[in-house]
Each structure stands twice: as C-alpha cells, then as structure tokens.
C-alpha cells in the first residue's frame, strides 16, 4: 500500500464504543428524511400502498414524530383490483393508529370499466394507478409525497434521488435531476410542482425483512405461505381473489401452498410456491432466492425500460 501519510489499517477505536448497526443507520436516515419533509413542505402526504414497504414506512413515520402522530395524512390509490386482504389490513391499521386515510379511486376508469384482464396490465396501471395518483395529488394540492420505493428494486429506481423533483405535470426528468449533496436536500418548489420522497431508497429487500422481524411490524398475511386457490396463467400463479377473474378454457383453480413476495393488483401479481409461514422462514428463503422480487410483477415486463417510462408519466 502506498501511503502518502501513515494511516491505520484498522478502524480507529472510538472512545465511545457505541456502534450503529446497519439497520440502525438506515432507520436514522429514514427518520431524518421524514422530519425534513415535515419541517419544509406545506402539504405533505404519505402514499400508503399496504405492502411490506409501506408497513415499514408507516412504522418509521411513527418513530420520527413520537410522541406526536405523523403530521400528514395517508393516501391510498385504490385500483379496485387490490387483494381483499390488503383492504381489510389497511382499514385495520388506520383504525388501530387513528390516522386520517384518504382513499382515491379514478372514477373515470371505473365508469369505463377498466379491467386488467380485458385491457391489459399497461392500460390498467396507467389509468387506475398513474392517472389516479395524479388526480389525487392535484385534488388535494400536495407538495410532497412519500413513497416506499427502493433503489435495489429496479434499474431506473437506482438512478433516482431521495428527494425527486416533479414538474407541474407530475413528470420526472431523469436527465435533469437536482444534484443531491450530503444530507442537504433542496426542498424548494414553485406552485404546482412537487417532490416525491423516498425514505427507503438505500434499503434492500433483505433489510426490509430483517427490520420487520426485529421491530415486530405487522404485515398483510398474504406474505406468509398458506393454501390458497390459484390459477396457473402465462407461467404465473394468480390467486383468484374474486369472481371477476374468469377461467379460460383448460384452466382450473387449485389449492396450493403459496405466498407473495410483493403485493399489487391481484390479477398482475404472481404468487410463489413456498412453505415459509413465519418471518424467520421468509428471511431464510430470501437468502437462497434465485429470482428478484419484481419478477412477480407483470407490469415490469411490458417492455424494456417500462418502469422508467411509467415514472416519467408520474407513476411512483
């Protein structure tokens, strides 16, 4: 080693031997981000999508403002095709904590009868998620919106800032992002513009599960293995959550021991065969996983670069 100055090869021993663990550091960073938004924006909102990342986000928001409640409302963009268990869990959590929940549904899409089975995942996601989200943000005039996206999920997400600027049309311009130096966030926006904020940017899927385990965070039971009625379609196991899913010739519903690694609209989310029925088993399974979590998402496969395209249009 060519030292310009003598430098210790081992870490200098701090006189105060309190080391933060990796999860401690991630938690501190997320709490910092929550507080920064609360201190600098006039009308923030937290997008609550009911999945595991939202559960962690909710937990961190409560820690950040303890003993006060988080000083912002929660918004769920309901596509009307979410798993029934997700909706039940959502309502139970909001009641338990006494939070304000805003639910937004794109009524235009409902009137047009948008249906992922008929119109395909692309149109469904655009109308019932992206457009619905833009409608809700405009309706309430939110200037900052928290989301649970992580950089390890997908290539275009790994390029995104923690404080991600959106113009008045909610569009993301990936080639023209504000430099994000240190922990100094530029929170200034003009009227109509907004910032999407991602406190979990630096978390990985494994970090999320370890944190859920360590902090005993409640999650939707769909993440745990159970015998469920599924249909095999286009190489995916789709849980037939209600009668709106019509069986095609040759298809049959069978009970299989399955669980979900990620949750979205039930027709677009594949289950995995698994016997992991508690958190420890899930973490163990993760360590031997050979596919990424987004493999279970139909919408990511629509076309190359599809996530980036959706994000430019205003998707989270």
């Amino acid at each position: 080693m060519s030292h310009l100055q003598p430098s210790p090869t081992t870490m200098p021993q701090s006189q105060h031997n309190i080391r933060q663990s990796h999860l401690d550091r991630l938690e501190a960073e997320a709490i910092h981000i929550f507080r920064e938004v609360a201190a600098t924006f006039s009308k923030p909102v937290m997008l609550y999508s009911v999945g595991k990342d939202s559960s962690v986000l909710l937990h961190l928001a409560m820690k950040a403002f303890y003993p006060a409640k988080p000083p912002f409302p929660f918004l769920h963009v309901d596509t009307t095709w979410k798993f029934r268990e997700m909706i039940a869990f959502r309502d139970a959590m909001m009641t338990l904590h006494g939070f304000d929940l805003l639910v937004h549904i794109n009524e235009d899409g409902v009137r047009e009868g948008i249906n992922p089975f008929v119109h395909g995942s692309n149109t469904h996601t655009h109308v019932m998620k992206t457009v619905a989200l833009r409608q809700a943000l405009d309706k309430y005039g939110f200037d900052a919106a928290f989301g649970g996206a992580r950089r390890d999920e997908e290539k275009s997400r790994s390029k995104e800032r923690i404080f991600s600027f959106r113009n008045a049309n909610h569009a993301w311009d990936p080639k023209n992002q504000r430099p994000e130096m240190w922990k100094i966030y530029n929170t200034r926006v003009a009227a109509g513009e907004s910032i999407r904020v991602f406190p979990l940017s630096n978390w990985t899927e494994l970090d999320i599960w370890q944190y859920i385990l360590l902090e005993e965070i409640p999650i939707v039971p769909l993440y745990f293995a159970k015998l469920r009625p599924v249909v095999e379609r286009a190489g995916m196991l789709i849980l037939r959550d209600d009668e709106r899913m019509e069986l095609l010739p040759g298809e049959a519903v069978e009970d299989r021991l399955v669980r979900f690694r990620t949750l979205g609209c039930y027709p677009l989310t594949g289950a995995i065969e698994s016997d992991a029925c508690d958190l420890q088993a899930i973490v163990r399974e993760m360590l031997t996983a050979r596919t990424s979590e987004r493999q279970g998402r139909v919408i990511d496969k629509d076309e190359a670069g599809s996530m980036e395209k959706k994000k430019r249009e205003g998707y989270f």
Partner: peptide, 16 residues
C-alpha cells in the same frame, strides 16, 4: 438504468 444511457452507451446520472 436509463434508456438514454443504454442507447448512448454512457452513464448520465449517478446510480446507487
């Protein structure tokens, strides 16, 4: 990760 980057074969923005 960005489309423009893959097309041009260069890195435009920082990725983590």
């Amino acid at each position: 990760g960005l489309e423009a980057e893959r097309e041009q074969g260069i890195t435009i923005d920082v990725a983590y």
